[in-house]
Amino acid sequence: MVMQALPRPVARAPVTRPPRLGIVGRMPTHTNDRTAPAVRLQGVRKVYGTGSAAVTALDGLSIAFAPAEFTAIMGPSGSGKSTLMLCAAGLDEPDAGQVKLGSVDLAGLGDRERARVRRERTGFVFQSYNLVPTLPVWMNVALPGLMGGGRPDRRAVDDVLARVGIAGTARRLPAQLSGGQQQRVAVARAVLSRPAVLFADEPTGALDTAARDEVLALLRSLAADHGTTIVMVTHDPVVAAAADRVVFLRDGRLAGDAGARSAAELGRELARLGGAA
């Protein structure tokens, strides 16, 4: 009763969520500065292999992604798309340069703290490796919270599953779902845990056009409704056309950066850079 007398907090409006990181020694508190980028790479260099077999995947790349921005990353095969995403997400360590998620510099973090960042700030929608094959759908959705040590709220999970259009699948195993449904489970996890940044690698890779459009719409609404920053790697111009911003990479360097464009324009640009994927 008293609750209703209180002014309702402004829902949806704040783009950045209150800090949930709690007490972590070396991790500064999340700032509420809307203008600060959600992800920022500065002079990031990554070389795989050594000697004559060395491949420079990222060559001093600097790029920033604003809060609530939906960015597609395109480029020919070997241009450094996936490496950019792995480094930005803290899944791979750059050889040089700085990666900041919000105000957190990833370079200073140990494995435990990185895991906490993954749990509380980032989400992933990959073609594979998204879902734990031995856990039912509802546990996969609730996994970040479970890993934090909490007992999951089944009601909330069911609500989210209904919202992404896969109500009634809670007790199934990922392998018992279609590819599109599996991608939606990954999106449902992101809706429930509301990460500040969602990384997606070919999130619609194995889907038919109807399922692809639905997953893209879900991603768009995550950015619009929850202020989630989305960084999506794709080789498909139609998929990239759904983004607010399209970044092109070639040889580990920035080769283009512009606002939303049509699939046809993107296709031509990609062809000009050499190769469709």
Binding site: D111, R114, A115, R116, R118, R119, F124, V132, P133, M147
Partner: peptide, 16 residues
């Protein structure tokens, strides 16, 4: 491997 990698992605530290 696949199971453990997915757990890691969802926020499990190596120790966890």
């Amino acid at each position: 491997r696949r199971e453990l990698t997915a757990l890691r992605l969802a926020g499990a530290s190596r120790a966890r």
